[in-house]
Design a protein around this nucleic acid. Structure first.
Lengths: 250, 250
DNA sequence: TGGGTGCAAGATGTATACAGTAGACGCGAT
DNA sequence: ATCGCGTCTACTGTATACATCTTGCACCCA
């Protein structure tokens, strides 16, 4: 399918949503700035109706904030908001891991997870790790987390995790690329992979508390990465989500 | 302000949303049933544009489910979904309590919470408890939980708690009224109030783990109520949310 | 009789016209 | 000079007309 066909196949609403999200995350629309519907029409090239739907969707995605008198503005986040969102994700993923462990999962469901574990092993075995490997890690890591969440077999929980992870700075892989520029990079990746291994082991042995605790701690690696990267001012361009930071030290 | 004025002052979108939500929760629209936009126009009396927005909002509220080929259907929930949602709320409220405890709150912020505690005390002191007192309890309980969540001072967390609690069967007071018909009613209320007291104490003493644990356990009272009420088949009409139950034993 | 194809009806997706309202700017009066 | 009022502009909220797509039913052919 050609790119043009693909563009035609998605609805105007989705197209508008993607375009606006891109504008926001790239920082071309600054936090606090009001987005008028007509302005959004100019940006996206679609009419007001789908633009309106896209704005509503971006609002509950958390990127926009409704103005009481009508309309929307770009939401601003504090560093605390970001750290809290990461802790929030960790808590939810911890709950998912606990559910999986306590309720038990059959051996076959664990197979793809272990396979994924092996794939990541191969990546982190390199020293130093290439940028391509980092990029591959982001993909595999996302897959691992998705598989893990599914093991909870809890639709309401998965829904909330997906929602929280949709925030650009709260996803499991948000700051992995930024981390690639840090001297501690390799070590952090090895620790993260150890967490992965432990949580699978805990689930297999039906150790709910252990599974929960390690997933919580796992999310704090992302918090650590964020703090390191901000303090070192290294490669802030690898973390586009930071465009949403209020009073940013950018 | 007259009722008619009030009706005029809210937008058509909100009015449509309220009308449709009412139809869903009252069971007049059955789980799995498709809601066409034109049908919704007939029900609400507003045009398709605001109806569409209302449907989108109800979707991310969790009451509707998008159909891949377009349109929406009423979402169906299993008993497990409901129990998981309650556990989910408890986990989030636990996190809020832990944040409050670990980060510390000044004495003045605790005052309204303690006041609320006292008000609930007066209610549960009655024996037996009148239906009016149960109704008042629902209000005070909601206030207590709201104040507690605010103590976390975490906007992202409060946002998620509000979202989860918006599900009609996951809110802190969802099954309190049903409980009013149970013989264990008074005892359960006293235990719940004890939890309230403990979490305030834990926050005051900066005992994060204790605050978190008690709020988790607190939510399980709701789960217990639900199970009791369903098994006893008592006053299912007091739990309109159960209209959403899949293959319900209604 | 069963399966496939085509048509029709009704649904959603989209665009646009119109109405109502909030906010800003300027002008006048005190 | 400052405060208040009025007007004007531009935005959002709403309704509706049009286009496209899905789906269900009927008919025809094998």
């Amino acid at each position: 399918m050609s790119e043009r066909d693909a563009e035609r196949s998605v609805s105007q609403t989705v197209r508008a949503q993607l375009a606006l999200r891109d504008m926001i995350l790239s920082g071309r629309l600054r936090p606090g700035e009001r987005i008028s519907e007509l302005q959004a029409v100019d940006i996206t090239g679609v009419s007001r109706t789908p633009v309106r739907l896209a704005l509503v969707r971006l609002e509950d995605e958390g990127l926009l904030q409704a103005i009481p008198s009508g309309g929307f503005m770009v939401k601003a986040f504090t560093e605390r908001d970001i750290l809290d969102s990461i802790e929030l994700r960790g808590t939810l993923e911890g709950l998912a891991a606990r559910f999986a462990a306590e309720r038990g999962v059959n051996a076959r469901s664990l197979e793809p997870l272990k396979e994924c574990l092996g794939d990541i092993d191969q990546l982190v075995r390199q020293d130093p790790i290439s940028v391509e490997a980092f990029s591959a890690y982001v993909t595999m890591n996302a897959r691992f987390h998705a598989l893990l969440n599914e093991l909870s077999a809890s639709a309401p929980l998965i829904r909330e995790i997906d929602r929280v992870s949709a925030l650009p700075f709260a996803s499991p892989s948000a700051f992995v690329m930024a981390q690639s520029a840090l001297p501690e990079a390799h070590q952090i990746l090895l620790i993260g992979q150890d967490h992965h291994r432990i949580v699978v082991d805990a689930i297999e042995n039906r150790e709910g508390a252990r599974a929960e605790a390690v997933m919580r701690e796992h999310s704090r690696l992302a918090a650590r990465n964020l703090r390191l990267a901000i303090r070192n001012r290294t490669h802030l361009e690898l973390m586009p989500a930071l465009a949403l930071l209020k009073s940013s030290a950018e």
